[in-house]
C-alpha cells in the first residue's frame, strides 16, 4: 500500500508548482491553469486524507471543489474572452491601464 506521505508530497509539489506559476507566468490562460493545478492539489490531499482517515467528508468536499472549479472555469474564460475582444492580448504585462 502506498503510504500517505507520498500523496502529501505529490500534493505539496503540485501546489508549489501552481503557486510558482501564478506568480511568475505572464499568460492569463497559463495562470488560470496553474490555479486549477492548485485546486487539484487540494483534491489529491483531500481524497488521500479521506482514505486514510476512513471518513467520507473529504471526498464530498472534493465533489464540491470540482463543481465550483467548473463554474469558476466558465466565468474565468468568459472574462478572458470579454477582455480579448476589446484588447487582443493575453499577456498580463499588457493589461495595465491601472497599475497592478
Amino acid at each position: 500500500m502506498i503510504p500517505l506521505s507520498w500523496y502529501i508530497a505529490l500534493s505539496v509539489l503540485m501546489f508549489s508548482i501552481g503557486v510558482l506559476g501564478v506568480l511568475i507566468r505572464r499568460n492569463v490562460i497559463i495562470i488560470f491553469m496553474c490555479i486549477e493545478l492548485i485546486l487539484n492539489s487540494v483534491n489529491i490531499a483531500m481524497v488521500a486524507f479521506a482514505h486514510y482517515l476512513n471518513s467520507v467528508r473529504g471526498q464530498i468536499f472534493v465533489l464540491f471543489i470540482m463543481t465550483v472549479a467548473a463554474a469558476e472555469a466558465a466565468i474565468g474564460l468568459a472574462i478572458i474572452i470579454a477582455m480579448y475582444r476589446n484588447k487582443e492580448t493575453l499577456n498580463t504585462s499588457d493589461i495595465n491601464i491601472m497599475k497592478w
Binding site: 501564478v22 490531499a45 474565468g76
Partner: peptide, 29 residues
C-alpha cells in the same frame, strides 16, 4: 477595457486566494 481588466485581476487573484484557503482547509481536515 477598465471593467474587463478589473474583472480579470479580481478573478485571477480571487481564485488564487480561494486555492490557498482550500489548501489550509485540506490540511486542517
Amino acid at each position: 477595457l477598465r471593467s474587463n481588466e478589473a474583472a480579470l485581476k479580481y478573478f485571477l487573484l480571487g481564485a488564487f486566494s480561494s486555492g490557498i484557503l482550500l489548501y489550509g482547509i485540506a490540511l486542517i481536515y
